[in-house]
């Protein structure tokens, strides 16, 4: 699945005037979705999950991502897609999802708020089975320099715990093509992840890893050590430049784990908690 045409549409749309300053109230929905096990296998391989009958915790994000882009590419969406930065992601799973289940995927936008550097918005992906919610993912995007709607509240600035004083759990060599590999399985073909030249056009010195790849690989390292019903909250900090050598640190806490990925700079902080 390539989202390149949608990206192109969004890029063109970005220079056209936008309608309104509020969020579109509509939802983008796909009913009766059956995942392709071959695609799950490729995703699992790229992110470091063992291949099982249940979906990797972060897999539904890529199902929802196509719908997110579809929503954000609409002219009713108040922020231009190119340049949106994924700053935070929170997944809540109520149980494991079997790869054979028929799923309903829906995406809507909410919480269009002010941020010290511009405006931010949440795109919420909901995965349900026979009417009951089994997985939800809230992706928070920042639009630098964008104008929030009049009277918007400010984004809450809560930081996730720092684990930099923990010993190294794993060292990852992240190769130069990590962005292309994840782009191929996620559909997130944002040029900043694909090639240094493309990234330079957007002001990055090299291509950078997808935040959700880093988040997926980090939680994959805890496969077998977590519950099926979990909340996985991650905060994306500095970009992870490709290629890189970075370190994963984890800390066992009551009800779950804190984790962090850092090289010379900090890339990701996360918390994984048993959810009720």
């Amino acid at each position: 699945m390539s989202l390149a045409p949608l990206y192109a549409k969004a890029a063109v749309g970005a220079v056209l005037p936008r309608r309104g300053s509020g969020l579109p109230a509509d939802e983008v929905v796909r009913d009766d979705v059956l995942v392709d096990r071959g695609h799950v296998a490729e995703y699992a391989r790229v992110c470091g999950f063992a291949l099982s009958d249940t979906l990797p915790l972060t897999y539904p994000h890529v199902m929802g991502f196509a719908l997110q882009v579809e929503l954000m590419a609409r002219r009713t969406f108040p922020l231009p897609l190119p340049g949106l930065v994924h700053v935070r992601n929170r997944i809540v799973a109520t149980r494991a999802i079997d790869a054979g289940e028929l799923l309903r995927a829906a995406v809507h936008a909410e919480r269009f708020v002010a941020h010290p550097k511009g405006a931010q918005v949440d795109l919420v992906t909901s995965i349900s089975v026979e009417g009951s919610l089994v997985w939800s993912g809230r992706s928070t995007y920042l639009a630098r320099g964008a104008t929030p709607p009049p009277g918007a509240i400010s984004a809450a600035a809560d930081e996730l715990p720092d684990v930099s004083d923990e010993p190294v759990a794993a060292a990852w060599r992240v190769p130069a093509d990590a962005g292309r590999r994840y782009a191929a399985v996620s559909g997130d073909v944002n040029p900043i992840h694909l090639h240094p030249l493309a990234a330079r056009a957007f002001g990055f010195p090299t291509a950078i890893a997808h935040g959700m790849w880093t988040a997926a690989r980090a939680v994959a390292s805890l496969q077998g050590r977590t519950d099926d019903a979990v909340a996985y909250d991650v905060e994306f900090r500095k970009p992870l430049r490709l290629p890189s050598r970075v370190e994963l640190r984890t800390r066992r806490v009551d009800g779950g784990w804190d984790l962090g990925v850092a090289g010379r700079v900090e890339h990701l902080r996360g918390t994984l908690r048993r959810s009720a």
């Binding site: 071959g38 296998a41 490729e42 391989r45 063992a50 291949l51 099982s52 009958d53 077998g224």
Partner: peptide, 10 residues
């Protein structure tokens, strides 16, 4: 597409 490790872990 499954490796020995995938199958043994499952």
């Amino acid at each position: 597409r499954a490796s020995n490790l995938d199958m043994l872990t499952a």
